[in-house]
Design a protein around this nucleic acid. Sequence first.
DNA 1: AATGAATGAGTGTTCATTCAT
DNA 2: TATGAATGAACACTCATTCAT
Lengths: 238, 238, 238, 238
Amino acid sequence: MKLPGHVASRVVDTKLVEERRGQILRAAVKLFSDKGYYTTTISQIAREAGVSTGLIYQYFGDKDDVLLLSLKLVLETYEKEIPPRLEGVKHPVERLCMALWAYCTIVDGLREATVLAYRSTKSLRADRRTLVKQGELRTNRLLQVCLRECIAAGHMRRVNEYLLVYQYVTFCHAWALKHWALRGRFSLGKYVAEGIGLLVEPFLTAKGRAALTAMRSRTADFTRGASQAKPARRARTA
Amino acid sequence: MKLPGHVASRVVDTKLVEERRGQILRAAVKLFSDKGYYTTTISQIAREAGVSTGLIYQYFGDKDDVLLLSLKLVLETYEKEIPPRLEGVKHPVERLCMALWAYCTIVDGLREATVLAYRSTKSLRADRRTLVKQGELRTNRLLQVCLRECIAAGHMRRVNEYLLVYQYVTFCHAWALKHWALRGRFSLGKYVAEGIGLLVEPFLTAKGRAALTAMRSRTADFTRGASQAKPARRARTA
Amino acid sequence: MKLPGHVASRVVDTKLVEERRGQILRAAVKLFSDKGYYTTTISQIAREAGVSTGLIYQYFGDKDDVLLLSLKLVLETYEKEIPPRLEGVKHPVERLCMALWAYCTIVDGLREATVLAYRSTKSLRADRRTLVKQGELRTNRLLQVCLRECIAAGHMRRVNEYLLVYQYVTFCHAWALKHWALRGRFSLGKYVAEGIGLLVEPFLTAKGRAALTAMRSRTADFTRGASQAKPARRARTA
Amino acid sequence: MKLPGHVASRVVDTKLVEERRGQILRAAVKLFSDKGYYTTTISQIAREAGVSTGLIYQYFGDKDDVLLLSLKLVLETYEKEIPPRLEGVKHPVERLCMALWAYCTIVDGLREATVLAYRSTKSLRADRRTLVKQGELRTNRLLQVCLRECIAAGHMRRVNEYLLVYQYVTFCHAWALKHWALRGRFSLGKYVAEGIGLLVEPFLTAKGRAALTAMRSRTADFTRGASQAKPARRARTA
DNA sequence: AATGAATGAGTGTTCATTCAT
DNA sequence: TATGAATGAACACTCATTCAT
């Protein structure tokens, strides 16, 4: 039974498959991000990746496969890069804020690729869109856990968790999607700081608010909205 | 001087141009929404509109023109349908809530078309993207005015107006963009009611909160989140 | 029976047919000459002639008809404009030289149209090409008669009449066909004068030579090749 | 720097490019000659050449490129085939006559293609027409050299060299352009013989005339105009 | 008689995909 | 395994021609 997410390769050597696919997908993500799925040709991807067109068909069934794995690559980047950024952060409120900051940072590095996910998911064959959506849900869950812990620990009052998480998600994505409008008004740090002011702070209990204040007086720029420093562009997609 | 937004027609009769373009654009919006810009062919649009392929080129310079005017049509729907829905509503808080409700309602009727705007704006020639963005900004301003009046009248505390407006916008758009995830959890009314709880209520002053409470006890379902009724699908695009 | 050269008109009023066809053909000759038959569209001709596209089909069966009559118009110009230029010229040698001069003058005024005849005769339906060729032959005959009279009167020795006439014809046409190469070297007068030196003079008898000398000492610039004066461009095609 | 005459190929293997282009151009010359540039479709060329339409675009940028190289191919045939025919011919008068004969022979083999050059040069983009004209000039120069040697060696009196060369050229081309009129009257040999009588003999000095007489009594049919034999049709275009 | 909107067959061109080497 | 030449279906766009008004 062929699973919708499975992409067959004519090549058997697993190590090689891994490597070649990575090489091709990095090229694909770059080009798809710049010019979109339909205006990027297989031979452009081949040229960018430094391989022949034929080779791409040894590692992917068709162009749709390349898109699917490209989108997966992007989503996995989200999923994999947030947790390490939370390591060592203990306080639930701090963890939530850090998660937002991490997510936005990653989006900032993958701005074009994030836009790509919005543009091109629908270009996938229907059964595969689900896979991409599931990837998004997994990332959402990272935020949801942070939020839930805040509530559980009494730092935040009861809210519509699910919807607030979606506000967080769209807030982070908006940095890419509406970058043309936001760039002029906010640095990334300022954007996140103000976002926390609107989407976290109002729901904190006295206890939670104290934690936020402490955090602000202590550390990261993004919580105070003072930062003008831009984090390094272009987190690698793999 | 050829403006980037100008689309020339070979036909001069203004009345006819209006009519034919409408006919063709309705077909185009439908197909672009369903299948995307690149997978929709001119001859499909022609068939859907009940005209010949040649005729499309009497009213549009090329396929890009059809997309531009399709997107403009969608954006103008937003811009034109919100204000009438606010008529007669006096209280600033009520106006803000009504604006959100109206915007979401319209998005709901144009769900696919809203997704289209996200997917396909980048498919436009660069100079024309700006036009679409300007259209979006004009709609944003409708919300901004409502928000500002709440603050000015002391119903809401001072907030980062610009960013909060963007939260409102992404909240409304999310109903279309994330419909696959939200549909199972919320009716549209419930969605808006909960959204007001997260994005309006926390910023209200005591005075403002009183107004919201009054409104809730009095009128529209959406403020209480009780509604399961779905509004009629497919608001006409023109 | 439909003759190959017959072009039907939906309009009966003979006077009007004459006028409208003239109007349209003048536009057609101009555009065909400039841009060639295939790259000129019916609607361009209509615009140039100041009529609607539909009207053209009231006076011509199809585009091929327009070309046929355009070419006929050009050929008839040759045929009709040479004889008046010979009026009053008595001496056979003088008549021959004058015919060459006249022909070249006309070609000069219809340079583009002459090229058109070479380019586009083959674009006509096969049976109609003959008509154009016959038109050319009739013009040739004008030269042939002049040449024959020179010989008959003992001004020229016996030559291959038919071939020499063709040299005359290609000489005149070359002024249009090779204008890009000749223009830099010769004025039209000089061109004709030198041409007479190569294609007439060598075949003259002593008697004929005397006539030529007399003519040169007496009159037209073109016989001496001194003229730099260009005759007025663009003899009207009708 | 992109030269106007340069035609890019997507394929790199020089040998293959040579071969495929030849294959395609032979088909193109044939079809263009028969039916003209605009009425020949790329897919007809592909079919005639036994390849797919797509392949043509691997070796030519667009249809205009195919025409350019077709015309170049024809002109190069002139340029390359005349010199070998003069090899071993010593006497200037004999060389001149042989050059005319050779040129006419080649034209006879490429009759349709010669007409093509007249019809279609103007269909090229303006900057490329020049290339074709330069090719023609190079061929003219071959004749010019022969003529000049006759004069230099005292076999011919001083004449307007440039113009006489053009008479030679149009004489040769006329065999193709006016074949419909000449065919009935002349064999190719007779045509050339008579042409020599009109365009060479009159300008010869006594010395030159002697050489011509000697040549006539000795060798090739074309000098005496007796030949009815037609040379083999269709000299290969490459 | 005159208009010009409407038609749709036909063209040049692109590009995902295959396959011989 | 890797190449890149070859394929051909598909598409945007044009324009001669028709016809209702």
